[in-house]
Structures are given as structure tokens and as C-alpha cells.
Design a protein around this nucleic acid. Structure first.
Lengths: 111, 111
DNA sequence: ACAGTATCTTCAAATCTTCTAATATTGAGA
DNA sequence: TCTCAATATTAGAAGATTTGAAGATACTGT
């Protein structure tokens, strides 16, 4: 009874697509240093409560974050620290790409 | 004269979003073992020529692939092998998440 | 220069995502 | 149980992306 007849590359794509929103990238960056309550995230991101929940729900849907309730607050954390590796590689790739543009600019300036 | 006044997390998000399409994930998987002509990719993906070009253009726009023309063919390759690290971590995270679901199923079955 | 092939671009229709605002749920404490 | 505060969910409008078809461009060999 396979729940998941979806090819792996489709699942992978949904994961990347879920990461493909500025607010969600920022949420994960914040979760690097441990769990945060929804209220704290909301304030840090300058979002309203609905928006914050929606983004968290998207991240939870694909299993990137997990939550824990404590009284009236809900705390979120990264489900697996490897997700930060994605962010790191992302940063490296962007750095590389900007460095390339930089070189081009310098060549142009040197003419 | 900053070309890029965009915050890093926005650029990062566009990169992930660009990766967030099954065809583009598959293209990168194919590029793991070296460069491929557009025609070859197109056949492997079973896409029409327009679609293939568009996906490649999206990948090139954010600097994940580079191309080289040889006669009438254009060959694409990954601009930086670190991008494969993204795919690898993606696979690991999905594996983890499926394993979690699996456990849940087993608990349910054991009841 | 011409014909043929390969790749790229463009544009509008269909689809999916995000945003906004309103409403629902959950738990704590009186 | 009632009410408040914190999160979550939903629905519809607005915005962005994908698709598919057609046309434009570039290269090779003759």
C-alpha cells in the first residue's frame, strides 16, 4: 500500500519549491540557533499571524520543521540539521555567481 | 553602482524556487555525469524543444548551469559541482522523512 | 546563397501560489 | 464554564509561473 508512488525527483522539487520563498528561507535561518515560538518568528519577520502560520505549515508539510506545544505557545525547530546544509550550499553558490559577475564588471571597467 | 541591492535571502529563495521544478531537478541529475546537448536532455526528459530551452534558461539565469556551443548543438553543464550537494541533501532529507512516515505506519499496523 | 536542422524566444491561456482578511481552534486561568 | 491570548485554517482576489504553439535565429553542408 504505497503512500508515495511519486517519483523522487517530484518530491525533491516540491521540497526546493517550498524553500523558494524569502520568508521561509528566513524562518529556517532563524531556526539555526534553536527552536522559536511562532510569536517570536512572527515579530522577527514582520508578518501577521496568518502569514507566519501559513509558511510554517508549508515547511511542516514537507517535513522540514517540527513543532511542540507549550501552554498557549507553539515552538518550531528544524526537523533535521542537514537542512542548514542546503542553506549553506545556497549561499556558496550565490557567492560564486556574484564573484563571476564581479570579474566581468572589472573586465569591462578595465577597457 | 550595486547590481544587487537584493537581500541575500531573497536571492537564495529564487535559487531554491528555480530548483523547485521536476524537470529542472532531472536536468541537474542528468548533468551529474558531464555535459549534455540540449537535444539529448530533451529526449531524456521527453519534453518539447521549447520547454527544455525554457528550463535551461531558468537554470542559467541564476547561474546554476553554463553552456557552450559546438556547431549546431549547445552543450550544458553544471556551473559548480556544489549544486549536486543540494540534490544529495535533498535526497537525504526526503529519505529521513519517509522513514519517519514508515515508522508511523508500522505503529499503526501493530495496534 | 540555400535548404535543412537545432536551438531559442515570445506570447497568451491555463494553472498554481501568495496575500489579505475573516473565522476557527486550542489551552490557560478566573 | 467563560474569556483571553496564541495559533491555525479558510476563501477569494491578486499575482506569478507553466505550458504549448508558433515564429525567429544561428549554424552546417552543399
Amino acid at each position: 500500500m504505497p503512500f508515495e508512488a511519486t517519483p523522487l525527483y517530484v518530491t525533491k522539487a516540491s521540497m526546493f519549491r517550498t524553500l523558494g520563498h524569502p520568508a521561509r528561507v528566513r524562518i529556517l535561518e532563524l531556526l539555526r540557533d534553536g527552536e522559536h515560538a511562532v510569536g517570536a518568528l512572527q515579530e522577527a519577520l514582520d508578518l501577521d499571524s496568518g502569514g507566519t502560520s501559513q509558511h510554517l505549515a508549508a515547511l511542516r508539510r514537507i517535513g522540514l520543521v517540527e513543532s511542540r506545544r507549550e501552554g498557549t505557545s507553539v515552538f518550531y525547530r528544524a526537523a533535521d540539521p542537514r537542512v542548514f546544509g542546503l542553506l549553506d550550499i545556497g549561499r556558496e553558490l550565490i557567492a560564486r555567481s556574484l564573484a563571476g559577475q564581479q570579474e566581468l564588471l572589472e573586465e569591462l571597467a578595465a577597457e
